[in-house]
Structures are given as C-alpha cells and as structure tokens.
Measured scan of single mutants.
Amino acid sequence: MQIFVKGLTGKTTTLEVEPSDTIENVKAKIQDKTGLPPDQQRLIFAGKQLEDGRTLSDYNIQKESTLHIVWR
C-alpha cells in the first residue's frame, strides 16, 4: 500500500509499505529516500508519536494515510 510522509518543509515523500511493517522498517525506507537516519526521525500520526516496535496496523494506518515527520 502507499502512504505519504510529510515533513516540516511541506515536502511529501511517498512510500510503498505493508500494514505489517514495523515503524522501524518504515524509518529505514524513509532513510533510503531522504538520507535522514532513523535515529533522527520522529513519526507522528493522529497526534501520536509512533514507536519503533509497533506496526502500521497497530496504529490503524491505512493506504494513503499521511504521517508527519519531525527531525530530532
């Protein structure tokens, strides 16, 4: 499925993911596209910070959802 990651600059990155992907895995995909290391990424969805060990489905993140990224 496709999801979007929007940064503070307003730039949006598209990712191809599975609902079973962990947040850690998603951060690795973001690094592949942007070069930003996972330890500098904070992902937010529906006002919650996403924890590395959880999956996208744990947070009810579905296709075409938009996550927000904040740099540490």
Rank of each mutant, 00 (worst) to 15 (best):
D52F: 04
N25S: 14
L56K: 00
K27D: 00
D21R: 01
L56H: 00
K11P: 11
L67Q: 00
T55N: 05
G35F: 04
T12Y: 11
V17S: 02
A28K: 15
T22S: 08
L43Y: 02
D32M: 14
Q40H: 12
T9A: 12
D58C: 03
L8D: 06
T66P: 02
T9V: 09
I69S: 03
H68N: 08
K6C: 11
N25V: 14
Y59M: 03
I3C: 02
P19C: 05
S65V: 05
G7W: 15
Q41P: 03
G53F: 10
G7Y: 14
L8R: 10
E18N: 13
M1N: 02
S57G: 11
Q40T: 07
I69Y: 04
D58T: 04
K29H: 04
G7S: 12
N60T: 05
P38Y: 11
K48T: 12
P19V: 07
Q2V: 14
L67P: 00
E64P: 03
H68Y: 14
G47V: 02
Q49L: 15
P38D: 04
P38T: 14
R54P: 04
T14G: 05
L50G: 01
M1L: 06
D21C: 05
T13H: 15
W71E: 11
T14L: 11
D58F: 13
M1Y: 13
T13N: 06
D58E: 10
L67K: 00
V5Q: 01
D58L: 03
K27M: 05
L43N: 00
Q41A: 09
F45A: 03
V70K: 08
F45L: 04
S65T: 07
L50Q: 00
D58A: 06
T9S: 13
T55M: 09
T34F: 14
I61F: 03
I61Y: 01
I3T: 01
Q31L: 08
N25L: 13
S57F: 08
E18M: 14
L15M: 05
Q62I: 13
I69V: 12
V5R: 01
H68F: 14
T22M: 07
T9I: 10
R42L: 15
T14W: 08
F45S: 03
L67C: 01
P19Q: 07
I23G: 01
L36Q: 06
S57W: 08
V17H: 01
V5G: 02
N25I: 13
N25H: 11
I23L: 04
A46K: 15
G53V: 06
N60Q: 10
D58I: 02
E18L: 15
G53Y: 09
I23E: 00
V17G: 01
P37V: 07
T66D: 03
Q62C: 05
M1V: 05
L50R: 00
K29F: 05
G47M: 04
E51Q: 09
V5C: 03
G35S: 04
E24A: 14
Q49K: 09
R42A: 10
R42G: 06
F4H: 09
E51W: 05
V5S: 02
D39F: 10
T14H: 05
L15I: 12
